[in-house]
C-alpha cells in the first residue's frame, strides 16, 4: 500500500520537476544576460522589479490556466476564455459608473458563470464536441463584448477598481493574492472534497466512473462553469490593470497561452490526472519568457520563432521517451 503511494508520489515528483527546471533555466538565463533582472527594491512602499512584474502579469494567465486545467482533465478544452475575459471586463467597466463597485464586480463574475454554464450545457447535455462548442462562444462572445462597449475602449477612474489589477497588498501585487486564492480554492476542492475525487475519476475512465455512481454530466457542467468564472476573474484583473476595457483585443489568443501553461505543467491533454501546481509554474514560465524577450530587445519579428523553439524544447524535456533515447545515445557515445 505504502509503496503504491510512494510510487504515486514519485510520478508526481517527476511531473512537476520539468516545469520547475524550465522556469529555473529561464531565470538563470536572465541572471547572466539581462542585467538588473533580479533587482528588487522598495518603491512607494511596495516591492518593485522585473520579478514582481512577472508575478503581476502572470496572474490572469494563471487564473485562466487553473480553470483550463480542470476542463482539460475532463478531456475537454475551452477556447472561449479570451472572449469571456473581454465580456467580463466590459461588463465591469460599463457598470462602474452606474452601480457600486462590488455590484459591478459581482455582475462580471455572474456573467462568467453564465458563459461557463452555456458551454457546459452545450458540451455535457447536447454532446457537442468541446472545441466546437466553445468555438461558438469564442465568436459570439467577442461580438457581445463589443456590443457592450460599442466597439470603443471604455475607461474608468475608479481607484478602488484599479486596485484589483495594479494595487499592492503587503508589498506584493494584489492580483497575485487573487490568483493564489483561486489556486488554493481549487486545490481544496481537489484534495479535500468528494468532488475532487470525481474530477479525476471521470477523466480517467468515463464508463467505469458512471458505474461507480458519478453522474459525469454534472461534473462536466461544473468544470466549464469554473473555467468561465476563472476567465471572468482574469477579465477583472486585466481590465483593472489598464483601467479600461478593450473589447476588441483583451484576451486575444490567451487561450493558447493558458493551454500551453497547463500542458507544460504536466497535465495530459488526454484527460485524467491533473497538476494544479504544475499549471501555476507553467503560467509563470510563459510570462517569464515573454518578459525576458521584451527586456532583451529581441526584434519583434523573431519572437514567434523563439517561442516555438522554447515550447518544443520544454515539451521534449518532459517526454519520457525523449529522455530515454537521449540517455541511450549518451551511453552509446561513452561506450564507443
Amino acid at each position: 500500500m505504502s509503496s503504491i503511494r510512494k510510487q504515486a508520489a514519485s510520478i508526481m515528483h517527476t511531473k512537476i520537476i520539468w516545469p520547475i527546471t524550465a522556469l529555473a533555466a529561464i531565470l538563470l538565463f536572465n541572471l547572466f544576460f539581462v542585467p538588473g533582472f533580479f533587482n528588487i527594491e522598495i518603491k512607494n512602499g511596495h516591492l518593485f522589479g522585473s520579478l514582481i512584474d512577472i508575478l503581476n502579469r502572470a496572474a490572469p494567465i494563471m487564473v485562466i490556466a487553473i480553470g483550463m486545467t480542470l476542463v482539460i482533465a475532463k478531456e475537454g478544452i475551452d477556447i472561449s476564455v479570451g472572449s469571456v475575459l473581454a465580456i467580463a471586463g466590459a461588463v465591469a467597466i460599463s457598470l462602474l459608473g452606474v452601480v457600486p463597485l462590488w455590484m459591478a464586480v459581482v455582475a462580471a463574475l455572474i456573467v462568467g458563470v453564465l458563459c461557463g454554464l452555456w458551454n457546459g450545457l452545450l458540451i455535457a447535455y447536447l454532446g457537442i464536441q468541446p472545441m466546437v462548442g466553445t468555438l461558438i462562444l469564442m465568436t459570439v462572445g467577442r461580438g457581445i463584448a463589443q456590443l457592450i462597449t460599442e466597439g470603443k475602449v471604455l475607461t474608468t477612474d475608479d481607484k478602488a477598481f484599479g486596485f484589483i489589477g495594479k494595487g499592492f497588498f503587503l508589498g506584493l501585487p494584489f492580483s497575485i493574492f487573487i490568483a493564489a486564492f483561486v489556486f488554493l480554492f481549487v486545490l481544496y476542492l481537489k484534495k479535500r472534497t468528494a468532488l475532487g475525487l470525481f474530477l479525476e475519476a471521470t477523466g480517467t475512465n468515463k464508463i467505469s466512473s458512471e458505474y461507480a455512481g458519478v453522474e459525469p454530466r454534472k461534473i462536466y457542467l461544473f468544470v466549464y462553469i469554473v473555467c468561465g468564472l476563472c476567465a471572468a476573474i482574469a477579465g477583472l484583473l486585466v481590465s483593472s490593470n489598464i483601467s479600461s476595457a478593450d473589447a476588441n483585443n483583451a484576451g486575444l489568443w490567451i487561450e493558447l497561452d493558458a493551454i500551453l501553461a497547463v500542458v507544460i505543467g504536466g497535465t495530459s491533454m488526454r484527460g485524467g490526472r491533473f497538476f494544479l501546481a504544475g499549471t501555476v509554474i507553467g503560467a509563470l514560465f510563459i510570462q517569464s519568457l515573454t518578459t525576458t524577450i521584451y527586456s532583451m530587445g529581441v526584434p519583434p519579428e523573431r519572437i514567434m520563432v523563439v517561442k516555438a523553439i522554447v515550447v518544443i524544447v520544454v515539451s521534449l524535456m518532459q517526454s519520457d521517451r525523449f529522455r530515454r533515447v537521449f540517455q541511450q545515445k549518451n551511453k552509446q557515445a561513452v561506450a564507443g
Binding site: 542585467p35 538588473g36 522585473s50 521584451y294 527586456s295 532583451m296 530587445g297
Partner: peptide, 8 residues
C-alpha cells in the same frame, strides 16, 4: 512592453 523597457 513599456514596463519591461523601463526595468531594463
Amino acid at each position: 512592453v513599456m514596463e519591461a523597457f523601463l526595468k531594463s
